[in-house]
Measured scan of single mutants.
Amino acid sequence: VTVHVNRYTYHFDNPEEAEKFAREMAKRLNMTVEIHGNTLKVE
């Protein structure tokens, strides 16, 4: 599972951890999480 935050890319083996990380980053940056299959984008 890949998480994109701005120009950074993070890889996770565990989808739940990836989503938790993405949501935490989105909250911190006041952004939203978009899910595209195995890719989560924080925008």
Rank of each mutant, 00 (worst) to 15 (best):
G37E: 07
V33Y: 04
L29Q: 04
R23C: 15
M25E: 07
A22F: 02
Y8D: 13
E24S: 10
R23K: 11
Y10K: 04
N38V: 03
T39I: 14
E34V: 15
A22N: 00
E34R: 15
Y10T: 02
R28I: 12
G37T: 04
E24P: 00
R7F: 12
E17P: 02
K27Y: 06
P15F: 15
P15T: 10
V5H: 04
M31F: 06
A18M: 01
F21P: 00
G37V: 05
H4T: 12
T39F: 09
D13K: 08
R23Y: 14
N14T: 11
G37K: 07
V1L: 07
L29E: 04
R23D: 07
I35D: 03
A18T: 00
K20F: 09
V5A: 03
V5Y: 07
N30Q: 07
R7K: 13
R28E: 07
F21T: 00
D13N: 10
R23V: 09
T39Y: 10
N38C: 12
N14R: 05
K20T: 10
D13V: 08
E17M: 08
P15S: 11
E43M: 15
T32D: 05
L40R: 05
R23I: 10
T39E: 11
P15L: 15
K41W: 15
N6K: 08
A22M: 03
K41N: 11
V33D: 01
K20Y: 09
L29M: 08
E43T: 15
V5K: 02
K41M: 13
T32Q: 10
A26T: 03
N30W: 03
E19A: 08
E24I: 10
G37H: 05
L29H: 10
R7A: 12
E16T: 10
Y10F: 13
A26G: 04
K27T: 09
R28L: 13
L40C: 07
P15G: 08
L29D: 04
N30G: 14
M25D: 00
M31V: 10
T9K: 11
A22I: 04
K41V: 15
N38M: 04
L40A: 05
F12P: 00
V33T: 02
I35L: 06
G37L: 06
K41S: 12
H4S: 08
R7Q: 14
T9R: 09
K20C: 15
A26Q: 03
D13A: 10
V5N: 03
K27N: 10
T39S: 12
R7D: 14
F12Y: 02
H4N: 05
H11T: 09
A18D: 00
Y8I: 13
